[in-house]
Design a protein around this nucleic acid. Sequence first.
DNA 1: AGACAATCCGGGTATATACACGCATCAAGA
DNA 2: TCTTGATGCGTGTATATACCCGGATTGTCT
Lengths: 133, 133
Amino acid sequence: MSNDTCHCILLRKATRKVSSYYDEALAPLGVNIGQFSLLRNIRRMEPVSLTDLAHKVELDRSTVGRNAKVLERLELIAIGHGEDQREAMLTIAPKGRDILEKGAPLWDGVQDDIEARLGHEKARQLQDLLAEL
Amino acid sequence: MSNDTCHCILLRKATRKVSSYYDEALAPLGVNIGQFSLLRNIRRMEPVSLTDLAHKVELDRSTVGRNAKVLERLELIAIGHGEDQREAMLTIAPKGRDILEKGAPLWDGVQDDIEARLGHEKARQLQDLLAEL
DNA sequence: AGACAATCCGGGTATATACACGCATCAAGA
DNA sequence: TCTTGATGCGTGTATATACCCGGATTGTCT
């Protein structure tokens, strides 16, 4: 029985499911929710080093580095160097800004759908609960 | 702003965090929460084919196949064949039963910790909300 | 200036996950 | 029985994620 009540497993299932909602909405743009979200974070901190970005998104630096490399190959960001030659500085590329603009309403749509299905009350509850974990 | 309220991103963060709780607790046994949970599911359906198991845990069949191969290498399960030669039938190996026994109290510990921190009320709420997504 | 520690990154390794493709096997109908 | 279509798997490919190690750069103290 324990598997049906494991907080971790239930969280994973929910995450996969919800991720697919966002992924499907963003599919026309050729990016998934992880990439889109990372792009948004980069825009907010631009220009930003891998270490700072990793700290912000609470992911391992090497993970962010590899994810960033995908965005670079898609020509959505540029990876350059700052004054400190050790740092890889990330900046949004023109195509990236385009994706950010076009993706915003798509993202809003999914977000609204979820809140409509749960109701604002429960949506808030969920976010609060997730933050408490 | 939007990144801080994205249901998907918040779910991912929470999932990573909570996964690490379980992973740390199970670390002495050399398995993570995903492997432990899969093992429990296999035990419950034993002997079970990859397709049936995948359907049960709501993961892609190829994913379950690869995860199972790891469990096989750890000698926690055995992968044989049923009457239908196409099917890969999974059964728990002795070492797997050992892990299941020793892991149960460790899993309980984390589960209890989480419920204690949230309170039974909120813990239930969380599970309900996750199911509604 | 030189030595040493701290910091930043890339790459290796491993697991988790999904999708698409092709091969083997089985089942059903001609 | 033979052909076909359905079913079950394994593998290739790609992304996501973490941990560890080693190399390069920077900062600091003597």
